[in-house]
Amino acid sequence: MLTSKQSDRALPTFISLLVIGVLLMTFDVRLEGGGVVGVLRSGTQAIVSPMQRIAAYAVNPIANALDSLSNVASLREQNAALSAQLAEAQAALVAVQDDKAKLTLLEQIYDLETDGAELGQTVANVIGSVDAALIIDKGTRNGVLTGQPVIDTNGYVIGTVKSASDGSATILPITASRDGLTVLVGSQTGTLVTRPFSSDLGLEMDLDVFDAREPVLVGDRVLTSAASTDYPAGLPVGEVIEDASPEATSLTTTVRPFVDPEALRFVVVLAWPPDPVSAATDDTIPEEATETTIADEATTTTTTPEDDG
């Protein structure tokens, strides 16, 4: 019976559940999130995600309103800073458009073929979060697979897909990952690692360069390296916020990621690494237009190789 007089079997039950819990944790560590554990995660997400999606429709306006209220004091300063950033970005855009036009002209002159290997992209809404992990409303049905890299709409690195079910997926941001990220700062390769117990205000990570040849300076951009097995090369991750010089052959400095995962509303999942077979025969594979619906009725059309499915 569920309700009755209090029995004194609480302690044995408690100990049994503790043992089961510790066993589960041990299994999870040993299996590294795969196997049965992965199936359990996917199954639970598949059950809960439809309810989360419905709740998100009701909750998002409330959350946005409360977020706005909490930010209202700093809105004027943010507005001025954003106006300045916009002016800079527009100037940079004009310069890039000039360069792009020159590049196109040169390609035509020299009859060069562009690579054209665009990565498949899936735009998804963030519908929730647990701890630092984000839950999105796209899953395996939309081509989102475990291990794929995730960026924001500006192309900045967010993290990777930790697990995916049919209609949702969990994203593990780089700021919450135990694994170091191989990055490039200038011409030097380093490892970006998280800082445990970081404060909400200072989203910072540690950069270790073990074969340092030159100093790194404030403002240096940190990009994903070709040596990384989790991300395509050249994606912007963050910027150095502390000067550092090599000591012996290594240096350590602090990096601020460009993306604050808590502030994200949309993310882009990249279909990477591309299937080696399909990548090699990319010209022969017809491309499939995938229509991705974003919240508030906005619609984006992305092109995905058929095999990425």
């Binding site: 408690f14 559940l17 503790l18 089961i20 819990g21 510790v22 066993l23 589960l24 944790m25 299994f27 999870d28 560590v29 554990v37 359990l40 995660r41 639970t44 997400q45 809960v48 647990v130 701890d131 630092a132 992990a133 839950i135 930790k162 697990s163 969990t170 593990l172 919450a176």
Partner: peptide
Amino acid sequence: IMDLLGASLIGLRAVVYT
């Protein structure tokens, strides 16, 4: 359930909540 929905170790919250 919270463990399975997040990215932390399975069993962590289960043990703590218990």
